[in-house]
Amino acid sequence: MRTFKDNLLRGLLWFSAFVTVGILLLIVGYIFYKGFRLINFEFIFGDYSPTGGGGIWPMVVTTVYTIAISLVIATPIGILAAVYLQEYAKQGRLVKTIRFATESLTGIPSIIYGLFGAVFFVTTLKLGMSIISASLTLTIIVLPVVIRTTEEALKTVPGAYREGSLALGTTKLQTLIKVILPSSMPGILSGIILSMGRIIGESAAIFLTAGTVAAMPSSIFSSARTLTVHAFLVTQEAGDIELAAAIGIVLIVLILVLNFSATFISKKLNKADY
C-alpha cells in the first residue's frame, strides 16, 4: 500500500513537471511559430503605418525612452535608499516604516499604479498622457526592486572591509564610494537589468499614463505606446495575432538578452579578483 501511494505521488510529480514545461514550451513555441514570418529588418526598424505592413520602430523607441527615464531616476534614488537602510540607519521605527513602505509598493498591482499615475502625473502635475508620465509611474514601480537588490548586494560586502577602511581614518562616505559600492557593483547591476525586464513587461500602468498614440514620439511629453502595449492593442483592436506574436518574439529576445547579461555580469565580476 505504501509503495502504491509512493508511486502515485512520484507519478504526479513527473506529470506536473511535464505539464509545466510542456505548457511553457507551447507558449513560447507558438509565439515564435506564429510570428517569425514577420520578423525582418524592415519590421523592427521601419516606421509604423496604420494601414498595416509597417514596422514597430516608434514602439521600440518609446520602450527605450521609458526604460532610460525611469532608470535614470530610480537607480540613484534606489541605491542611495538601500545604502541608508543597510549602512546608515539604526534599527528602529523609522527603518521599519521604510521597509514596510517598500514591501507594500512591491505588492500593489500595476493597474493601481496606473490609476495613481493618471491622476497624479497626468492630471495634477499636468504632464498629460505622455512618455514622461508613464516613466515617472514606472519609476515608483521599479524603485522597490532596485532597493531590494541593492540591499542584498550590500549585505554580501564583508564587514571587515568597512572596519578596515574606517580604521584608516576615512569617512563613511569615502568607505562607501571607494570600497563598498565597487564590491557590490555586480549585484546592483543585475538588479538594474532585472528592473529593465520589469519595465519592458509592464502594460496596465503604461496604458493608463502614456496613452496609445501609435506614432514616433516627438518628445518625452508626447503620448506613445511601448512594445508591450502595442502587442496588447493589436490583439484587442484588430485581433492580429501574427503581429502580436512577432512583437512577442522581440520582447522575449529582449528579456533573454537582459537575463543573460545579468547572469553574466554577476558571474564575471564576482570571479574577477577585484
Binding site: 509545466t20 511553457l24 502594460s203 496588447f232 495575432i241 506574436a245 528579456i255 537575463n259
Partner: peptide, 18 residues
Amino acid sequence: VQLLAGIPSVLYGVFGLA
C-alpha cells in the same frame, strides 16, 4: 522556468486568445 517569469504577461493573454 525562471526566465518565463519575466515574459510580459500580455503575451500570455495573446496566447490565451489565440
